[in-house]
Write a protein that binds this DNA or RNA. Structure first.
Length: 564
RNA sequence: CGAGGUGUAGCGCAGUUGGUAGCGCACCUGUUUUGGGAACAGGGGGUCGCAGGUUCAAGUCCUGUCACCUCGACCA
């Protein structure tokens, strides 16, 4: 790449409409450019990084005998209606119509088409196992795109699928994929943790996520280090920590709580410990109204509730629904004499003489006990908190934040049954295929790498991913000797390595060139300047404090060593 | 979806009580510079998000609309 000629630009200042460090660095270094909310151009330097990440992924996929193919991004809507996922995805699917008014969608993920592709090959047990993958643009109409390339509406994902005869085969395929994923993220030099995650509505057997550790991560990871426990907050189980209270049970009575609606207000008004309260939250779950009770200082874990009920959608009930269900305005719901299903968090079973809403304006009940009402179900429905005991009892958990850069999913046979993907076994019986699905967000990896690897000057790419691996900077382009040495090195390095080499032959001041190379994260910088009088040039690695003088004739060897 | 904010040159911004648009950076020309984002001089670039309306006159006032951003989507 020759800067005096090729497409190249940088911005000196942060742009306003980027809300993350990685987004700003990538925009400022001229690698990406936002065109709409959550939609980006991938400019030449950015695309180089993408390609390098893709190639690492491709090598590891090929190594485990997954075959690459390419699916369409635009898919007839009926494909998702048949699998039952049109509803599951709902508004998050981009939908459009062709000129004959036939409905299409832009694929958010491709299980359906891969199952269809598998059907072409899989008829007999002799055809299994097999595995396919692709790199493909996915479309998801996120309600709130955020953080540069991290939460976007159009993105390239590597998705792989395995097809096996039985669970033992699936376990094997999953383990191979899992190891390949570790190889990939190790090679990408991402600092990651693997957590257990929600298997979602398809009722898969196991889901694990590869999470890049990062402060702006949108997922909360629940960690207990001594036992190696790691889970997404969504599914981290809680255990009952307190002993059954030994207080004598009192009879409940009604209390005036004027103007006190929120839990904080009631706590303040009654001057009681928040742990003496039970919050009753009214939810609309798949169109039905439920009351969920958790201790005053706890929060409902909606994922757990969905799983418990086998439901798809959960949201707080509207004001009208609350009034209809509790016969009281919002703020005074309680479990006593409530005529809707009540789901009680298990922690409440050890409480006595607690405080609940009275389903009347400005009233709460105190000294309420379990015998005073009848819950429909008792279960673990609360969010675990930092410091709570880990479900395995090994110790208190701590929280980290992560960016989900990959996931691995044992789907089981549920999917094959829905998609009618069966094979004939040795006994001529039809058996559903055991599937696994495995995703990696390519640009998300790129963003995570930048979030994790930058300094005040710019991006610090791993050397195998840097869009520019060697940058030759000519200090003074009017100095014929400097130009000659630099050009010679440029030709020599291009001829003798497969690295991405850049020559900065612009008529700019040294500071401009240095800053640009640091911003874009050129891995090794060769400075051709006054040192050539002694037959030397300077070599500096991005992020290092000092540079090294190297004899001109030794540079190629040295560079080869560095990138060996 | 709810609340708030912002749309003026490639980027960041200013623009008073309405009077036909400016600053910094970037860009072009020239001169002097040349090892960490140069200096001076000259210059180019904008249907002020879009559509209506009020007015002799609208970046500015009014209405609508679109886009982008932030917060919330956990309140009982």
């Amino acid at each position: 790449m020759r800067l005096s000629r090729d497409y190249f630009f940088t911005l000196r200042d942060d742009v306003k409409n980027e809300d993350s460090t990685s987004g700003n660095l990538l925009v400022r270094s001229g690698m990406i450019k936002k065109t709409s909310s959550g939609i980006y151009m991938m400019l030449p330097l950015g695309l180089r990084v993408m390609n390098k990440i893709e190639n690492i992924v491709r090598e590891e996929m090929n190594a485990i005998h997954s075959l690459e193919l390419s699916m369409p991004a635009m898919i007839a809507e009926e494909v998702y209606i048949e699998s039952g996922r049109r509803e599951t995805f709902g508004n998050s699917m981009f939908a459009l119509k062709d000129r004959f008014n036939k409905p299409f969608v832009l694929g958010p993920t491709h299980e359906e088409l891969f199952a269809a592709a598998a059907k072409m090959h899989v008829h007999s047990y002799k055809d299994l196992p097999t595995s396919l993958y692709q790199f493909q643009t996915k479309f998801r109409d996120e309600p709130r795109p955020r953080f540069g390339l991290i939460r976007v509406r159009e993105f390239v994902m590597k998705d792989a699928y395995t097809f096996d005869r039985d669970l033992a085969g699936l376990d094997l395929a999953y383990d191979k994929m899992f190891q390949a994923y570790k190889n990939i993220f190790d090679r990408l030099e991402i600092d990651y943790v693997i957590v257990r995650a929600d298997t979602g509505v398809m009722g898969g057997l196991l889901s694990e996520e590869f999470q890049a550790v990062c402060d702006i991560g949108e997922d909360i990871l629940v960690i207990e280090e001594s036992s190696g426990y790691a889970s997404n907050l969504e599914i981290a189980k809680c255990i009952i920590e307190d002993e059954v209270s030994d207080e004598p049970e009192l009879s409940y009575e009604i209390k005036d709580t004027p103007q006190a609606k929120t839990i904080e207000e009631v706590v303040a008004f009654l001057n009681e410990d928040i742990k003496k309260f039970v919050k009753t939250l009214i939810y609309n779950i798949d169109g039905n109204i439920y009351a969920l009770c958790v201790r005053g200082d706890h929060e409902v874990n909606e994922t757990k509730v969905l799983k418990l009920l086998g439901a798809n959608e959960i949201e707080m009930a509207s004001e009208e629904e609350v009034i209809a269900a509790t016969k009281a305005p919002v703020g005074f719901a309680g479990p006593i004499d409530l005529e809707i299903p009540i789901i009680l968090d298990q922690e409440i079973t050890v409480m006595k003489n607690f405080i609940v809403g009275a389903n009347q304006v400005d009233k709460h009940f105190i000294n309420v006990n379990l015998s005073d009402f009848t819950p429909t179900q008792v279960a673990d429905i609360r969010k675990i908190r930092e410091g709570d005991m880990c479900e395995n009892g090994a110790g208190p958990v701590k929280f980290m934040r992560g960016i989900e850069v990959g996931n691995t999913f044992k789907l089981g046979d549920g999917y094959a049954k829905a998609m009618d993907l069966y094979y004939t076994d040795q006994n001529n019986k039809l058996i559903p295929v055991q599937m696994g699905s495995y995703g990696i967000g390519i640009a998300r990896c790129m963003a995570a790498i930048v979030e994790q690897n930058h300094d005040k000057h710019g991006i610090l790419w791993p050397k195998h991913l840097a869009p520019i691996q060697v940058a030759i900077v000519i200090i003074n382009t009017k100095n014929a000797e400097q130009v000659e040495v630099a050009e010679k090195l440029y030709a020599e390095l291009n001829a003798n390595t497969n690295l991405d080499i850049l020559i900065d032959d612009r008529d700019e001041r040294a500071g401009v060139k240095f800053n640009d190379m640091e911003l874009i994260g050129a891995y090794a910088r060769i400075t051709v300047g006054r040192g050539i009088a002694d037959g030397k040039v300077e070599l500096k690695i991005a992020g290092a404090d000092i540079s090294e003088d190297i004899a001109i004739e030794d540079i190629t060897t040295k560079i080869k060593e560095i990138f060996a």
